[in-house]
Computed example of a mutant assay.
Amino acid sequence: MDWQKGEESQNVEVDSGGGGGGRGFGGGRMGIGGLIILALLGWIFFKNPLALLDQSGGQPGTSAPSSQPAQVDPQQKEFVSRILGSTEKTWGDIFSSMGRTYVDPKLDLFSGGVNTACGAASTAVGPFYCPGDQKVYLDLDFFRELDTRFHSSGDFARAYVIAHEVGHHVQNQLGIFAKVSQLQRQGVPMEGADGLSVRQELQADCFAGVWANRTQQRLQWLQPGDVESALNAASQIGDDTLQREARGTVVPDSFTHGTSAQRVKWFKTGLQSGDIQQCNTFSGPL
């Protein structure tokens, strides 16, 4: 992947440690946005997200566990910046075509732990998006795990991870987070093979595919094997694959992100169409 062709974003922040000054919802306690993100966190690890977030509810001044100044290689930061910049250009153009304005997210590079508007999170959470502060959070150590644990090397696999989290920001901008919250209050389950969380995650995969399609048309930056590396990354992080690896069994009732086949399917749907209208995962079978 010739990622140097990407536009460089000015929205990448390197966390200075101490939790980054996160703030809480509703007078310092976690509100509905935080509750939604609890169901969505644990993007990679099959763990209870409540165990991964600080139980203080993200009160101001609360430090994330083992938070420390992020040590970021300049080339890695440039890579993240150019991938994020490419998403800003792509989604800015798409929103403009719909008569809307896309507000760029921030991307926080942290190490060990970080405070967010959704609570304090550790590296174990993996990359995630917090709707409360409209930030993507990423510990670059995750990329090493992507190589070693998930056998998904390559720049485009890493770019897919960023684009997926930006996909959640797009959902937030489009009001999908608010609709999911409303449906949850009406009793629609978050977890499960047909739950809201799975549908929301698969849509973010589809949005990542839309980004890949549109950006490739504009920059022509992909090389042989790049698409395969991203598809492999998607297949390695399905709920069924992770549960089988961790437990030896698969429990569909606890799914939060979709199966490996579903994640590949929806990323390919966006990649092949380049059309967000094809990403309606909330209607019909998955």
Rank of each mutant, 00 (worst) to 15 (best):
I94K: 11
A124K: 09
F110T: 01
A121V: 11
E78D: 14
A117G: 12
K47P: 00
P69W: 01
T123E: 15
S63G: 08
D108G: 03
D104W: 12
S56L: 02
A117C: 11
T62P: 00
P69H: 06
L84P: 02
G58V: 03
G61N: 06
V125Q: 08
D108C: 08
S97A: 15
S66Y: 02
E88M: 03
A121S: 07
A70P: 01
V103R: 15
G85Q: 07
T62M: 06
G99H: 05
Q71G: 08
S66Q: 03
F79N: 07
T62I: 01
D93V: 12
G119V: 03
V114L: 13
G119K: 02
R82H: 13
T123K: 10
V72D: 13
I44Q: 11
S97G: 13
A124S: 13
V125N: 13
W91M: 11
R82T: 07
E78T: 11
R82E: 11
S97Q: 14
T87G: 04
N48T: 02
D93F: 15
L84F: 03
A70L: 09
G61E: 07
F110Q: 09
Q75N: 14
G92A: 13
F45R: 15
V80F: 12
K77D: 06
A117Q: 06
S56V: 00
S63L: 14
S67K: 00
I83E: 01
F45T: 08
G57V: 03
L107K: 07
A124M: 13
A70E: 05
Q76C: 09
G99N: 05
I94V: 15
A70Q: 06
S96N: 15
T123V: 08
I83W: 14
M98Y: 14
D73H: 02
L109W: 00
I94E: 14
D104C: 12
T62K: 01
P105I: 03
F110M: 12
Q76H: 09
S63T: 11
A120T: 15
N115Y: 00
K106C: 02
C118T: 04
A51N: 05
S86Q: 09
P49K: 04
I83H: 06
G85E: 10
P74C: 13
Q75P: 12
V114A: 06
S66D: 06
V80K: 10
T123N: 13
P65V: 02
I44N: 12
A64E: 02
R82P: 05
L107C: 11
L52N: 03
S63F: 07
C118R: 01
G85H: 07
F79S: 03
S97V: 11
T62D: 04
A64P: 00
R100V: 05
V125G: 05
F46M: 10
D73V: 03
F79Q: 10
K89A: 10
S122I: 14
N115R: 04
D54H: 05
A70Y: 01
A70V: 06
N48C: 00
K47Y: 12
E78N: 14
I94W: 14
N115Q: 11
K89M: 08
S56M: 02
